[in-house]
Every structure is written in structure tokens, then in C-alpha cells.
Amino acid sequence: MKRRLLDIYDALLLDLDGTVYRGGQAVPGAAETVQAARENGTAVRFVTNNASRSPEDVAEHLTSLGVAAEPSEVSTSAQAAGTVLAERLQPGDEVLVVGTDALADIVSAAGLRPVRSFTDTVKAVVQGLSRELAYRDLAEATLAIRAGALWVACNMDATLPTERGELPGNGSLVAAVRAATGQEPVVAGKPARPLMDEAITSANAGSPLVVGDRLDTDIAGAVTAEVDALLVLSGVTTPADLLAAPAWLRPRYVATSIGDVCGPAAGLEIAAQRTWEVDRTDHQLTARWTGNGPPVDELALLRALCAAHRPIDGGEIKVRAEDDTTRAALVALGIARTAVP
């Protein structure tokens, strides 16, 4: 019997938006994958940079979408920020909270005292996204940081995906405080290590697998934590993005969606493929179909292209298709704009 990814790793560290759900709907196969992991004895952790909601709220939201979740299975950047603060401060120290009440609750749970205004007794600032954030909040944070307070940012996500489109994320608001203070925060969320370490420790995992849809947070976070990753193409990252990514930012595996975790691991790795041949020169990849008939696996072509093209700094490369099957596969992958006859 072919081994599943689920059988190789002892924990799944699952990103949320774009991986487990999209907008108000679960990604097809997400609920079944989480259930299969539990039945297999594989730990599940929902790992999110979202610092505005409590673990209880996150678990409730997932359950409402049909993906069963417990608060203890949720790891947020706010929790990671709380751990960072607790490690660097004394019990009872005042922390200026720039964010939601849920973030303030986490500060309290860490044995610290959350406040909303700067005084000379404030020892740290913790900054997470809140849609009710005002100028006053950023001003209070600026005063504290300029006075020498430790500054911890829950995450550096520049944008927040919504049904209306991309809106400013916590990273954009952190940038405003950075401009006003000339300081850099300690970052808790992906791709920084604290959140990944928190999730791995919580799951008691020795060999976890990160599953996510973003190269800059999920896959980079796996690289930082030195664990394997599966990139799913159900969210932000496109095949063209992956092909253009630098070699260090490549995951070990790439698949259509989270449901592939329950499928055979063989064939999901970025490596040479049996049904596609790819030759590389300095400025071009040449690909050809070597299979005997349908079905044509376009993702296998993507894996073969990525295995052949491993740039140090990243960047697009032209792809030459030697046959109609390969040309059609490139179109299906959305990288036809780089293809040449």
C-alpha cells in the first residue's frame, strides 16, 4: 500500500484562509482531511497569523464551516506574542495593547497587565490587527516605543484578504509605527519562528508537516522552523509564483488542495517526473510530454519545472513547449505567458 503524507508526519500544521477555507466556505476535502488525521492519530493544529480572534472564536468559526476544531488545536500569532512577552518581562509588567480585547486577554493570561495608554511604567507594546484601531492607538504605541518599551508585532502581514478585496493588514499599521519610531519590532507570527515553535510544542510533534497556500508566510515559516511543507494551490500562490520563487523558498511538496494529504505521498514532491522531461539552459526551460495517453497531470509538469529551475534569487524564466500536450498543460497552469513556441 502506498504511504500517505498523513502516515509520514505526526502532526499537520494547517494554515486557515486559502488552505482550510476560502471566505465563508471550507475548501473541499478539508473536513475529511482533519477527520482522517484524528483517526490516524496525527495531531492537528490550526496555525494562523490572525491576532484579532481568540482560539475559541477560531474553533467556533471552523466548526460552523463543518471543520471540527477545539480551541486547544488553535495556535495564533497573538498567543505566540504572549509567549514572547512572558519570556522577556516580569510577571505583572504593564503591556500597552494595540489590538483587540482578545489580544488583551492573551496578555493577561501570560501573567502581564494590559493597558491602553502610555505611562512611564509601560514595559512593552504588543501590536495586532483591530478594525477599530485609531490614530490614538498608534500614537500611544509610538510614545512607549520611543521611551524604550519592548515592541512585539503579532505579524507583518501587509494585507488582509476579505470578500471585498485586499485591505490593510497588521504589517501596514506596524509600518506606520516603524516610520514614527525608527525601531523594528520582534515578530511573533509566520514566517518568524515563535508561532511555528508554539504550534509544534503544542502538538508535541517530532516530525510536523506545514500545509499552507502562501510562500511568504507558510512556506517561509516552515523553512525558518526547519520542517517540511506542502504548498496547496487553493489560495494565494499560483504555479507561476512557485516557479519564479527562489530555491530556498520551495516546499518539499506541492498539491492542488489540502485533500491531497490523504493521498499517496509519492509523486507530490518537487522532483523529476516520469511523464515529463525538462531541459534547462541559462535562460530557458524546454519541456516535453513523455506519457502514453490521458490523463495528463499538469501539476507533475509544475513539479518537474521547479526541480529543473532552482534560482538563487528567484525570477521568471521562459518555458518552451516541444509538443501540444505540454503547451496545453502550461496554459492550464497559468504560466503560458512565459511559454514560447
Rank of each mutant, 00 (worst) to 15 (best):
D260N: 08
C306V: 01
L138T: 03
Y135R: 14
T19N: 10
L6E: 09
S72V: 10
R45P: 01
V261S: 07
A153R: 10
A30D: 10
A11D: 05
L268F: 01
L129A: 00
T142M: 05
D105V: 01
E226K: 15
R38P: 04
A328K: 15
A59T: 04
R116Q: 10
V296H: 12
A321I: 02
D10Y: 11
L299V: 00
G314S: 01
D297E: 13
S207E: 12
A11P: 05
G182H: 11
V97R: 14
V210K: 10
G235P: 07
F118D: 01
A255G: 09
I145H: 09
T237P: 10
R193S: 02
A80G: 11
L16G: 03
L215E: 00
L230W: 08
L133R: 13
G23T: 11
V331E: 14
C262Q: 13
Q273H: 08
T48G: 08
A141M: 14
S172D: 07
L129I: 00
R303H: 06
R113V: 08
R113C: 06
L302A: 02
T100Y: 10
T181M: 07
T142P: 00
Q183P: 08
W276V: 03
A68D: 14
K123P: 09
L243A: 00
W151V: 00
K2Q: 11
V232F: 09
L150H: 12
L243P: 00
G24K: 15
T224S: 08
K2Y: 11
I8H: 13
D260G: 02
